[in-house]
Amino acid sequence: MRLLTLKSALICTALTFALSVAGAQAATDTKHPAKSSKTAHSSKSSKSSKTSKTSKTAPAKPSGQKVSMLGGKFVFYLPKEYVKGPMEEIDDKAKAAGVTGSLYMNTPAKRVVIITETPLPDGKNVPSNDTETLDNIIAETLVQQQSSYRDFSKLSEKKVVRKGVGLRQLDISGSVDGGKVLSTTVAAASGNRTAMVNVISLAKDAKAHALVVKGVTGSK
């Protein structure tokens, strides 16, 4: 089963720039008024102390849109301002073969996040950090991207393990219709499926691009 080519992904990015998104989320804090009663002071101080300790040790609840891949083994969050849409380039034949995908768009920033899952060929079944499978996926992706971008340049390639799931990160730069872009592909595989996340941004937005990628990989 062939992987989706980057050419299809680039068609999707062109469609997103006409859309508009808006959204902002405000966080609110609640404060508890203090009372000056000597008899209740000790008890309330104890409760307050327990509450304080609980708030310090409780893990922060993830914010944004949850994206779950590979049966929940590979999970990350995207900012709320990204609008989710279908991958119209996945044809009926691919869908019947088990290929799925979604497109997340941040129109003001002209950034897209494309996620796809594809069955491994020949019914192959692999563990969650299979070196050979991941190396092959990235090698194929690199070849595809070299033919899809003008002024292609490979920037880096990284290996990351996130909660037991092995990831490969491929960073490249190139030109699309005269515009300079950054493209990061993150690949994973587990069981009989592969997962790919492709983040594409304008080259001038390198810092914001890196933040989105870190959210996907969980790297520092």
Rank of each mutant, 00 (worst) to 15 (best):
V165M: 04
I138Y: 00
K163F: 12
S173K: 14
S148I: 03
Q146C: 05
K154G: 09
L170H: 04
V160Y: 00
S173N: 13
I138P: 00
E132F: 04
V165T: 08
D177H: 14
T141F: 03
L182V: 06
Q146L: 09
V143A: 13
L134H: 03
L155E: 12
V181T: 13
E132K: 08
L170D: 03
L182N: 08
A139C: 05
K159L: 09
V160Q: 04
G166Y: 01
N136H: 10
V161K: 14
L170N: 00
S190M: 10
D151Y: 12
R162P: 05
A139L: 07
D135M: 14
G179Y: 15
R162K: 15
G179F: 15
D171N: 10
V160H: 02
E140M: 13
V160S: 00
G174Q: 09
E157M: 07
G166T: 05
V176N: 09
S153V: 13
T184N: 07
V181K: 07
V181P: 00
T141N: 06
T184V: 10
A189C: 13
K158E: 15
S153P: 01
L167Q: 00
L182P: 03
K163N: 14
K180I: 07
G191Y: 01
S148L: 04
G178I: 09
V161F: 12
K180A: 15
K159Q: 11
L134E: 00
S147R: 07
V161G: 12
G179M: 15
V186H: 00
R150Q: 14
G191N: 07
V161D: 14
Q169T: 11
R150Y: 09
S190Q: 10
L142H: 13
Y149V: 06
D151I: 10
V165F: 00
K159Y: 10
A188W: 02
Q145M: 04
L155R: 11
S156G: 05
I137D: 06
S173W: 05
A188H: 02
L134W: 05
K154Y: 07
S147V: 08
S148Q: 10
Q145C: 02
K159R: 15
G178A: 11
L167C: 02
L155G: 05
S183I: 06
S173H: 10
S153M: 12
D135N: 15
L182W: 05
G166P: 04
A188N: 01
V176L: 12
I172H: 02
A188M: 00
L155K: 13
V160F: 02
L182K: 04
G178Q: 11
I172W: 04
I172E: 01
E132H: 02
K158M: 11
T141D: 07
Q169C: 08
G166I: 01
S175A: 15
D151H: 14
L155Y: 03
K180N: 12
V165C: 01
S175L: 14
Y149K: 07
G174I: 05
A187Y: 04
K158D: 15
L134F: 05
S147Y: 06
S183Q: 13
E132D: 11
S153E: 15
S148R: 00
V160R: 00
G164H: 07
V181M: 11
A189L: 08
K180Q: 12
T141H: 01
V181W: 03
Q144R: 06
I138F: 02
G164W: 06
K158Y: 11
Q144S: 10
K154V: 10
V186S: 00
I138H: 01
V165L: 06
K163G: 11
K180Y: 09
G164C: 10
I172K: 02
